[in-house]
Design a protein around this nucleic acid. Structure first.
Lengths: 211, 211
DNA sequence: TAAGGTGCTGACCAACCGTTCAGTCGGCTG
DNA sequence: CAGCCGACTGAACGGTTGGTCAGCACCTTA
């Protein structure tokens, strides 16, 4: 418990601690002001250090922001995986996954709003942050696609382009999250997740089977 | 043709012309650099006027950007309405609407990328641009909801929360547009629109009816 | 205690941006 | 043609920001 991978406590552990502190501070400031207006000065103040100190732990602003984005997404994915693992069947797994995402976005409302704003995909000069966000989203889509593929193999879902369907579902989820953020007094997370999955599985058409 | 509403050609017409020129220039610059990096200096240069001139036609930068956003959206809506009007049935109208949107986003790729980036919903200090974008999206959702409601009344679609379903479809469309922008060599607009409508109408579930 | 080092500080810098406004000058009017 | 008008210009300004660096305070070591 004390002798594992403890090379230089003074150097490594303290560095990790400071890094984490700054990332958390950045998270708070970004949540309050958005990515564009979160200045290094403000983040430093929030973290209780001087501006220059940040540059001892992060190469520049972009790297700091990228780490903030990665951290938040890692937590979300962990939660989604755990939820999906607990549930049974494709429908259950998808609902659990949506639940996890909706809950996470509700609890981290501020940072989530800010993240929205920075989904930029200009091909020229792709900044580090945009690339990370892109990669993160792709990871989520792949995970959902996996669930859908297994659902297809088990016969629970019909054959379809899994990746495309996954993207379809993820974007719908994004839409639901945005709507939830817009009007805080909404239905429960479970109800919203169920609605989305229902749409996703059955569609709104009425050709033959109602339910 | 020449005597209607022609109060001051020298004043009004020229003003409209200049305004249009500047909006078009802004469109180009935003497409190239994104909203955040489109400076008034650069836009002025692109429009072939001095920076100060812009302020004779627009109160400030935000108003200019808002007009750019409004202009683009107006064209899109016009196209979507026309497409839907020509088609028959809810499925046809939705497909035509998606077609129009996909085509429009393909043809105006650059500005569309940039617009993505500015979908920010911070509750505090809502800037003019964000409000306009919000309003524009709401208009599109309402239009789609109308189509869905009429489809429900005619029995082509099952009963559902039309607004929610519309939002669902619009967000999915956004996802498809993003994917198209990401990988330019994709299937045809019509095929993509059909796929989305198919998902939307029938879902991916296999409970009973395959088609 | 003196010397050396190291993490940290925050004043400073250069670059940039939106906005202003005093001045220019081509063209219209009388 | 003279004189004025106002559309247009672009240098200048105020403000902000990301990034730097000389020095300070504290701790360890000799």
């Amino acid at each position: 418990m004390a002798l594992r991978t403890a090379s230089r406590t003074k150097e490594e552990v303290l560095k990790d601690f400071r890094t984490g502190e700054i990332v958390q501070a950045a998270r708070r400031v970004i949540g309050e002001l958005g990515f564009a207006d979160a200045s290094m000065e403000r983040i430093a103040h929030e973290a209780g250090v001087a501006k220059g100190t940040i540059y001892l732990y992060f190469r520049n602003k972009e790297e700091l922001l990228a780490q903030v984005a990665d951290h938040g997404f890692a937590v979300l994915m962990e939660r989604a995986r755990a939820g999906a693992a607990r549930a049974r069947g494709a429908e259950g797994k998808l609902a659990a996954l949506l639940c996890a995402a909706l809950e996470h976005s509700t609890e981290n409302e501020a940072i989530f709003r800010a993240l929205q704003e920075h989904r930029q995909l200009a091909p020229e000069n792709p900044p580090l942050l945009a690339a990370r966000l892109e990669h993160n989203l792709e990871q989520l889509v792949s995970f959902v696609a996996g669930v859908i593929e297994r659902g297809t193999k088990s016969g629970e879902l019909r054959t379809c382009n899994a990746r495309r369907a996954a993207r379809f579902l993820v974007e719908s989820m994004r839409g639901a999250i945005l709507e939830r953020l817009r009007e805080p007094t909404r239905s429960s997370v479970q109800a919203d997740a169920a609605t989305i999955v229902d749409f996703f599985l059955h569609g709104v058409g009425t050709t033959e089977s109602p339910r």
